[in-house]
Design a protein around this nucleic acid. Structure first.
Lengths: 390, 390
DNA sequence: AAATTATGTGCACACGTTTGCACAAAAAAA
DNA sequence: TTTTTTTGTGCAAACGTGTGCACATAATTT
């Protein structure tokens, strides 16, 4: 495709202006004009798009000798329209495959049915599960989903918010990226009177509805379970404490230790939320004087790699060392042994979050302040932890 | 929330009608009216939504004593507008946070920048990777993504198409559900002059652009690799042959056998694309007289379960039996041993598909017929296959 | 100086809907 | 019959933007 020095619009405009000279006395200057004229014409035709045709309310009105307003009302079962007219119109619309123009409708009524979703990562068991839940709930309520992916990147998250506000969505479901530390973009959503619900990775700087997993209880139960199976020195592979989900799990972990009268050893509590960190930190812990006899990990992936490292160091799982993950993704079924984990019920979280947002949009959620929903977690014991000693 | 017998619109309408009686001679009938009147008023106020306010072109025009047309042109750097007016308008717009109303723009120009995506499954490594690729390419070109999830269900797929057409998207990227056998809904997309590009699970009944993985070569190379490592009786755990991706892989598998002068045993080629089927079919194959010494599986998940079953039957991997998957998802790293697989380059497929669709939309893809893009596959040998004997 | 051309702006209509209001005709009540 | 009420329909304006055209005024060419 040739490069355009000016936009098509500019070209058309100039063209019209140039064409507007009188043909009385022609100069070299005019000849140049002519040349340019034809060149531009060609270029414009070349780039012209074909317009598509769709039947409208007006067309129906014209065909049935009615006014557009009558047709509009007939389509919506307005009580002032006679039964016969309604049937007439609806049948005509049916046979001619009339599709209301959503754009025009939304413009007129100043309200639409598109909700935006911002996800920090999509190639990710938990978030894709949540997305599936959101999608199902939204679809069943007649809402569309505008999908954005921040990829754990602050700049992309800001751009996503802009995109969604430009598209005039009626609400936004968001989970924060790891790198986000400023919240102006989220505040802007609220300033624009667009409803906002956070899920999972909530934003502490913004006062709005949220749906979170009960991380504290999940961690507490998992750690207590390992204690009941005889573990004494449980290591915690966590994430940055600025993320509430990570901090809550650490608190659940520590409280479970305290409740069972076990020491809370700060050396056993590490930030280790990626595969690379696991390769570094797990061997270090295994080398230390006081060997841990269990690992409680921030997610299933870290847990799976942790298991690999532990096994290759010659320890048996779960005989020597127990391992527990978090999420209950499908990798927990294919490791050897299978991985004990905490189910986060992502699908339900998605449904609850979408439900809450839609209620806000439709004014059905009347509670004035901030609404917080808690999704229950569930311990799923598999092969990487021992049986409870009775 | 109380149940509404009639819609709000109907209520308002009736209200106005009823209010329209003369107050001269009041009867019991009228009193009933009055009661109903107030009840309805209350109900309407109760359900009323707040309208949001946004600054428009008109507002700017009024504030600067210009006409809306001038403001419109100034914002778009139209050449007919003087520099000072343009700066004036753009600065005013900037400070007052003017956001063009996308709906109105799209309505006026009859063209929008939203493309629809239909994915059969989202809690799925490959498809979520493709979605990430689509998202990145679309975002960089200024397009929005309307996300639909058919969940491998024909009815939901049809509904998704309806939704996307109603939303007037300018193009659709789709991957077919397993249960789809009629294609009218896809044809309707084309009949509505909306661009359509299939990816991965293409629809053979529809003549349109597509992007597919080179399944044949992927399968061929994987099987040949296993042959070179000394495997002689390779089983194929495939999927329904009506899906081109499954059929192409079977052909690659068979051709690799033939090329290397190995017999093609129909008993070793099964339909086994779910975990449940694997639990049934793999043990059956292991019991048979002529034990396979390798499994080539349609996806990583089946391969992982296959490995579990093989191991628990007492065979060593890869010493006794080799296993190879397809996709290169993250489960291939956490199985024991790690799983040899074929990388499908999902992210690139997403980008290529989006690129192709956008080119069609913008008229940059001038090739008139059907365009097919092939995404290269790549064998990724890991721990579940042996080293090649030199 | 006169004719021509360039420049900048505004009017009015269009896109496809929805909706307040007016109005005629039919039905019911007085 | 006359008045009131009900019923069904159409007119016109609106949502926020884009664009053809006309029309002044300024700049340039004859």
């Amino acid at each position: 495709m040739p490069v355009l020095l000016f936009s098509i619009e500019t070209k058309v405009y100039n063209l019209k202006r140039f064409a507007n000279f009188s043909m009385n006395n022609i100069s070299f200057f005019h000849l140049c004009r002519c040349f340019f004229f034809f060149f531009t014409i060609f270029e414009i035709v070349y780039f012209q798009n074909v317009l598509m045709s769709q039947i409208t309310l007006k067309d129906i009105a014209k065909a049935l000798n009615l006014s557009p307003s009558t047709v509009s009302r007939a389509m919506k079962n307005h009580p002032a329209i006679s039964a016969e007219t309604r049937v007439l119109v609806q049948e005509y619309a049916e046979t001619h495959k009339y599709k209301p123009n959503t754009l025009a409708m939304q413009l007129r009524t100043n309200r639409n049915t598109t909700i935006g979703v911002i996800v920090p990562e999509i190639v990710h068991y938990f978030f894709s599960t949540v997305l599936a839940g959101i999608q199902q709930e939204a679809e069943s309520e007649g809402y569309n989903l505008l999908f954005c992916h921040s990829n754990e990147d602050y700049a992309r998250e800001v751009r996503s918010v802009e995109t969604l506000l430009d598209a005039r969505v009626c609400g936004i479901l968001a989970s924060q990226s790891k790198t986000t530390e400023k919240f102006d973009h989220f505040q802007e959503i609220i300033d624009n009177d667009v409803h906002l619900v956070f899920f999972d990775r909530i934003c502490t700087g913004i006062n709005t509805d949220k749906v979170v997993v009960d991380d504290y209880a999940g961690a507490y139960n998992a750690v207590e379970h390992m204690i009941h199976t005889g573990c004494q020195r449980i290591a915690f592979l966590g994430s940055t404490p600025s993320m509430p989900i990570a901090n809550n799990r650490r608190m659940g972990y520590e409280d479970a230790l305290r409740k069972n009268k076990l020491p809370v050893d700060k050396n056993l509590s590490r930030i280790c939320d990626t595969v690379d960190l696991a390769r570094e930190i797990v061997p270090e812990l295994l080398r230390s004087d006081s060997l841990p006899d269990a690992f409680f990990c921030i997610n299933d992936e870290v847990a799976a790699y942790c298991m690999q490292i532990v096994k290759s160091a010659g320890y048996g799982i779960p005989e020597d060392i127990s391992v527990c993950g978090f999420t209950n993704s499908y990798i927990t079924e294919v490791t050897d042994p299978t991985l004990t984990t905490v189910d986060q019920h992502g699908f339900e979280m998605g449904k609850v979050a979408a439900r809450l947002l839609i209620n806000r949009i439709e004014g059905k959620e009347t509670k004035p302040g901030v609404v917080s929903r808690l999704i229950k977690t569930e311990l799923v014991p598999k092969g990487s932890t021992r049986e409870i000693v009775q």
